[in-house]
Every structure is written in C-alpha cells, then in structure tokens.
C-alpha cells in the first residue's frame, strides 16, 4: 500500500532538492579528508591541498622503517590491547552474577553503572595524576592500563550484562545439575554462545583506548613509552617545520586499525547499535 501521490511533480522536485543538499553536505565532509590522502602520497607535501607531481609511497615507507614511528605503534598496541583484554575478561566475570543471580542490589548497581558511563573522565585525570605521583605509578604502562580499564568498565559491564541476558538460562541448568561451577558454566556454555557480544566489548574498548590522547599524554612521561596518538600531536603541535607528507601517512596508518575494526564490528558483529545499546530509549 503506497500513499496516494497527490502532488507527483512537487514530490520529485523536493526529492531532487534533498539529493542536492545531501550531496553538498557529503562534499563538505569529504573535503578535509582530501588533503590527508593527497599529502600522504606526496613526498614534498605542504599544508595546502595540491595534486602531487610525482605521487609515491615514499612517506609510508619512511614511516615503516623508522624506530621513532614504530615504537609508538607498539606502545599503543600494548596499552590498548592490555586495556581491551583486561576490560573484556573482568566485565564478563562481573556480568555473570548480574545476569544470572537474584541479587538485591542489582537494580541500584546497574543504575550506578549507567550513571558512571556519563561521568566526564577528563575531569578525573587531575586527581589521578596526583594519586599516581604518590603511588609511584606515573610513567608506567601498568598504571595507564589500569586507569583506562577502570574507566572503560562501567560501559563494558552494562553491555556485557545485556548480551548475557539474551543467552537462555535453560542451557545452563543442565550443567548446574551436573555440578558445574559458575565459572565453568560461564566458560563452557555462556561465553561461547555470546562470542559476538564478547567481541564487541573487547574491540570497542580497544578502539577507544587506541584513539585516546589525553590519558597517555598526562600519565606517560617518557617519549619512548608514548603511543601513536601522542607522537602525532608532538609532531604537528610542538615542532615548527614538519614533514607533513610523512605525518599524513602516519595518521592514515594510525587510523587504519580503528577503521578496519569498526567495519568488522558493524559487518560481522551486529552493527554499531549493539554499542549504542544504551542510547535507544
């Protein structure tokens, strides 16, 4: 059943107008990207957008063959990977009682968790810095990973509990009768059935940690410990003349894992709206 098209000509005019507006917005969104891609294949790139005279992959090559650019990638992998795995494991464990047991504090706890996801993590960095000075945790991967895990956990627990709720209880009851512990039934029955959910939580935490600039910028002091996010800033924000082409190539390489993981989540793990599960009212 289609709506009766009373005003067909008017409708096609407004559709054409809509396409025009959408195309314009698309172009405006695309323009800032254009420079990044052109500069990355231009060995003598400046800040202005120009079509390279002799495009080459020299910028990418020099990024790949220098320790000053590879170390930050390894650091980022360590920090984000550590945060992602630690968050995923401890959130899965915490979600099990919240999903399976009758706990009297369940509702207030889940509301507190939801409340915590809205708190501005930026603001906590000053006291965390002061705390880390006292605990001698400044400039340590361990301290940075623990702080990032702590701030990722509320949302991770929230998501994980919702994913776990969708695994039917009946499958576990058989294992309970056979005397399986909670840990065993979590590991052998529940988690295998919610692998996509587990993946979403782990990957999403990794993406956020990989893109985080402020936390490592404050908590890690030695240049050889800093991840790629901080080194990009130090190249364009602090030093005067910059090899813009190399920095553009570096930025693309730094963004690539995040973009790839995002595409992976949305294609194979049920879409971005699993992430934003808390958003839909």
């Amino acid at each position: 059943m289609k709506a009766p098209s009373v005003a067909m000509p008017r409708k096609s005019v407004s559709a054409a107008l809509a396409y025009a507006v959408l195309t314009l917005i698309g172009i405006l969104f695309l323009v800032p990207f254009v420079w990044l891609f052109l500069a990355s294949v231009n060995p003598s790139a400046s800040l202005a957008v120009t079509v390279p005279k002799s495009p080459s992959l020299a910028n990418f090559k020099s990024v790949f063959t220098s320790d000053t650019t590879l170390t930050p990638f390894a650091n980022g992998l360590l920090i984000s990977g550590g945060t992602g795995i630690l968050t995923m494991v401890s959130a899965a464990l915490a979600a099990y009682p919240l999903s399976r047991y009758n706990l009297r504090f369940k509702r207030p706890f889940m509301y507190t968790i939801l409340f915590a996801t809205g708190l501005p993590v930026t603001a906590i960095l000053v006291p965390v810095y002061a705390l880390f000075v006292q605990l001698n945790l400044l400039d340590s991967f361990f301290g940075t990973i623990m702080f990032m895990t702590a701030t990722s956990l509320p949302f991770a627990i929230w998501l994980m509990k919702n994913f776990m709720d969708s695994v039917p209880l009946e499958l576990e009851e058989a294992a309970w009768v056979d005397g399986a512990s909670a840990l065993k039934s979590l590991r052998t029955i529940v988690l295998p059935l919610m692998l996509p959910g587990l993946g979403v939580v782990g990957i999403f935490t990794f993406i956020l940690a990989w893109g985080n600039f402020f936390v490592p910028f404050i908590l890690l002091l030695s240049p050889n410990k800093q991840p790629a996010a901080v080194s990009i800033y130090q190249f364009f924000g602090q030093y005067g003349s910059v090899a813009y082409g190399q920095l553009a190539a570096y930025s693309i390489l730094y963004s690539a894992p995040v973009v790839a993981l995002y595409v992976f989540i949305s294609r194979f793990l049920g879409g971005a709206f699993n992430l934003a599960g808390a958003v839909k009212g």
Partner: peptide
C-alpha cells in the same frame, strides 16, 4: 557473587 565480581569492583574502586 563476590568472586566473579571482585576483579571489576577492585579496579573500579581503586582507579575510578
């Protein structure tokens, strides 16, 4: 519930 929830609760308590 304490066992499974302990790691997350300790990390949140200490670092958040």
């Amino acid at each position: 519930w304490i066992g499974p929830m302990a790691p997350a609760l300790v990390i949140i308590a200490l670092f958040f």
